[in-house]
Computed example of a mutant assay.
Amino acid sequence: MTVQDSLTDIDAFAAEWETWHRQKDASLAHEHGFLAVTGLHWPAGDPQRFPDAPGTWSTGDDGVTVELGDGEELVVDGVPVRGRHGFGVIPERGGVNAVWGKAVIEVAKRGGQDVIRPRHPDHALRTDFAGTPAYAPHPRWVVAGRYFPFAEPRPTTVGASVEGLQHVYDAPGEVRFEVDGRELSLTAFNGHAPGSLLVLFTDATSGVTTYAANRALNIDAPGPDGTVVLDFNRATNLPCAYTDFATCPLPPAENRLPVAVEAGEKIPYERKPAGQ
Rank of each mutant, 00 (worst) to 15 (best):
E183V: 09
R119Q: 12
P224M: 13
S206W: 02
W20H: 09
L40G: 08
S206H: 05
T205L: 09
P80G: 04
H123I: 04
R82W: 01
D5I: 07
Y211G: 07
R140W: 02
L40I: 10
Q4K: 13
V179G: 07
T202N: 13
P54K: 15
D128C: 05
G131P: 08
G173R: 03
P194L: 12
H85G: 11
L200A: 14
E67T: 11
I105T: 03
P118M: 07
V261I: 06
V228C: 12
P54T: 06
V158S: 00
R126F: 11
P194I: 04
F245L: 13
Y269Q: 14
H32V: 03
F129W: 05
R271H: 12
L125E: 13
R82M: 02
L186H: 03
S206M: 07
C248D: 14
V66H: 01
H123E: 15
T227E: 12
P139V: 06
W57E: 07
T157G: 09
P47R: 10
Y242W: 05
W17M: 04
Q48L: 05
G223Q: 10
K109M: 12
R271F: 05
N97E: 07
F232V: 00
V261T: 00
E92A: 15
R215N: 12
P137Q: 07
C248R: 10
E183G: 03
A263Y: 06
Y147V: 01
G78Q: 00
D231R: 02
V89A: 14
F177S: 11
P118S: 13
Y135R: 10
L68A: 11
P268D: 04
D170L: 02
F177Q: 07
E262C: 06
L40Q: 06
G164R: 13
K272F: 01
P121C: 15
E92W: 10
T227S: 15
W57Q: 06
G173T: 01
F245W: 08
N218L: 14
P51L: 08
G226V: 00
P224F: 09
D114C: 15
R93L: 12
F177I: 02
H138N: 14
G111Q: 08
H138W: 04
R154S: 13
A26R: 05
G191H: 04
